[in-house]
Amino acid sequence: MSVQFTDVVKRYGTTTAVSGVSFTVETGTLVTLLGPSGCGKTTTLRMIAGLELPSAGRIEIAGRDVTHLSATQRDVSMVFQSYALFPHMSVLENVAYGLRRSSVGREEATQRAREGLATVGLTGFDARQPSELSGGQQQRVAVARALVLKPSVLLFDEPLSNLDARLRRQMREEIRELQRRLGLTVVYVTHDQQEAMAVSDRIIVMNAGRIEQQGSPRELYEKPATPFLARFMGESNPARGTVRRIDAARVRVRLGDTGIEVADSAAPDGEATVAVRPEAIAVETAPGPAGALAGTIAKASYLGTHMEYSIDTAAGTLFATCPRVERPLPPGTAVALVLAPRGVIVVRD
């Protein structure tokens, strides 16, 4: 593995930014640290980089204990949120900077910097100043500058937060494509769960300085372990329901006047928080099939690709998305809701 954290703690005076975090990053994978702002994800990333040294615990990179090494001494490079391009150097000088500092000769450094720029599709931009580039181009220069050092681990600190939405999608695809093609080990920080799901092999969700849950994007989305995760990973409706076990692998969940069988091997009997994904709610005109949840449309919005409804039900107000846009239901319509078992999740309290 490329990065290993063991019980790492970071304190600033009396406040604890990261409290006892352990995880590993396998070589050649892209792992995302995801969480709301102030959760400790950036501090964790900076501890990998060596820009912050941990107060306690152990950090290994590529099998070497680097806990007390400074950033310069670690085989890691980083793409900053602000890009941190040196404003007094040309694009080529920026990309060659790390190579020159690693005592690579001028000729070779220039050569490799050109290759790096080619890798990110910026051939011919050598002589430009950073301020003469668009946001996306600056981003690519920052990536090229980090890449040319061939680090064991490449770090990204919210790299897309300064870009517009269309560019953000394009850049995240480029980063993912680059990571796969070159087999890079990447640790990526973001607060955007969609971005995290789109680029990651694995996601580590952090909250209040601790790891909330880690796993593949699918695991986190379909089996969120805590209410925080159910809320944070995609949209979900928190509802109160009762759980009754059927057998080892299934439970029956009652929500209002409807009941549904859900695959679950852990939840105990009794009251529980149930997360319902909006896309798992099928909206039918009343009366609908037997056993459906009755409700009334409160709000309706047309979004082109789908409809969004807020529906008042006995189990609370539910938010649902509906792909049928040709026949929108106006507010006040009585409806029947059919829940798909995949989108109903019993959450541990």
């Binding site: 040196f86 790390g98 500092r101 980090a146």
Partner: peptide, 11 residues
């Protein structure tokens, strides 16, 4: 962050 960038680039 300019100093930090330089540090992570072996400066």
């Amino acid at each position: 962050s300019l100093d930090e960038a330089s540090a992570t680039l072996r400066g």
